[in-house]
Computed example of a mutant assay.
Amino acid sequence: MQIILYLSVALIAIAFFVLVIYLSKTLKSLQVTLTSVSDTLSGLEKQLDGVTTETTLLLQKTNALAEDIQQKSESLNSVVEAVKGVGTTVTKFNGTLKNITQSVDQQVEESKEKISQIVQWGNILLELKEKWQARRHPKQEVNVNERQRVRSH
């Protein structure tokens, strides 16, 4: 019975030894895998640091660009307001010119009859002057008429 006991112990020892060998191989394989994973994670950490740095720089540039756009937008707003002011001034000027033109047209229309009367009175005065001069100097007209007849012959 002792032999069976020794054989059982020996068999258990051999099984334990085989188990330890396979467990050792598995642990070494696991160690290699974990080392590879650790190296990969280190590389990823470095890359992530680079991406974080680039992202920070990009965010800073984006903020600077947003500020620049804001300043230019405010400047453009002042230009637009100035142009709007010029447009308002031109519109008022056009309205004033229109009012002046209408006023002048109205005054000319009102004065038309007066001007016509003045011209008629002027014509009448000229005719009176000519008749008066013709009565005053009738001989001179005869002489002028005779001269014209002599020249035509």
Results as ranks from 00 to 15, higher is better:
residue 118 I to P: 01
residue 79 V to N: 11
residue 123 N to I: 06
residue 138 P to Y: 01
residue 130 E to Y: 02
residue 60 Q to P: 00
residue 68 D to I: 03
residue 139 K to F: 02
residue 123 N to Q: 15
residue 69 I to A: 06
residue 79 V to Y: 02
residue 62 T to P: 00
residue 74 E to F: 02
residue 67 E to R: 12
residue 136 R to D: 02
residue 59 L to G: 12
residue 62 T to M: 06
residue 139 K to A: 06
residue 104 V to C: 04
residue 138 P to F: 02
residue 120 Q to S: 15
residue 126 L to S: 09
residue 104 V to T: 14
residue 76 L to Y: 10
residue 121 W to V: 13
residue 91 T to L: 10
residue 139 K to T: 06
residue 121 W to R: 11
residue 101 T to H: 09
residue 118 I to C: 02
residue 109 E to Q: 14
residue 65 L to M: 11
residue 105 D to W: 05
residue 120 Q to R: 15
residue 104 V to K: 04
residue 57 L to S: 11
residue 117 Q to K: 15
residue 131 K to R: 13
residue 84 K to G: 15
residue 96 T to Q: 11
residue 127 E to Y: 05
residue 112 K to E: 03
residue 83 V to F: 05
residue 109 E to W: 06
residue 73 S to F: 09
residue 112 K to V: 08
residue 87 G to A: 02
residue 66 A to L: 11
residue 130 E to I: 04
residue 117 Q to F: 04
residue 69 I to K: 14
residue 86 V to F: 08
residue 61 K to W: 00
residue 131 K to V: 06
residue 98 K to M: 09
residue 65 L to H: 09
residue 138 P to L: 05
residue 124 I to E: 05
residue 108 V to G: 03
residue 58 L to I: 14
residue 131 K to W: 03
residue 84 K to S: 15
residue 96 T to M: 06
residue 130 E to R: 12
residue 98 K to R: 08
residue 67 E to N: 15
residue 96 T to G: 05
residue 75 S to L: 12
residue 93 F to H: 09
residue 95 G to H: 05
residue 65 L to G: 04
residue 113 E to I: 06
residue 120 Q to Y: 10
residue 102 Q to V: 08
residue 128 L to K: 15
residue 111 S to A: 12
residue 51 V to Q: 10
residue 76 L to C: 11
residue 86 V to G: 03
residue 57 L to N: 14
residue 85 G to F: 00
residue 96 T to N: 14
residue 128 L to H: 11
residue 127 E to R: 07
residue 93 F to M: 12
residue 74 E to I: 12
residue 97 L to Q: 14
residue 64 A to T: 14
residue 102 Q to I: 07
residue 136 R to C: 06
residue 81 E to M: 07
residue 81 E to F: 03
residue 80 V to F: 02
residue 70 Q to F: 02
residue 142 V to M: 03
residue 118 I to M: 03
residue 129 K to F: 02
residue 133 Q to C: 12
residue 94 N to C: 08
residue 72 K to H: 11
residue 128 L to Y: 11
residue 85 G to V: 04
residue 91 T to R: 11
residue 131 K to C: 08
residue 109 E to C: 05
residue 106 Q to W: 02
residue 67 E to W: 00
residue 49 D to F: 00
residue 58 L to M: 15
residue 125 L to V: 13
residue 54 E to K: 13
residue 120 Q to D: 11
residue 80 V to Y: 01
residue 67 E to F: 02
residue 61 K to M: 05
residue 74 E to T: 13
residue 70 Q to M: 07
residue 121 W to G: 01
residue 56 T to V: 11
residue 50 G to W: 00
residue 86 V to M: 12
residue 79 V to K: 12
residue 127 E to C: 06
residue 47 Q to L: 09
residue 93 F to A: 14
residue 108 V to M: 13
residue 90 V to D: 00
residue 50 G to S: 10
residue 139 K to Y: 01
residue 108 V to R: 11
residue 136 R to K: 14
residue 128 L to M: 13
residue 84 K to V: 05
residue 137 H to N: 13
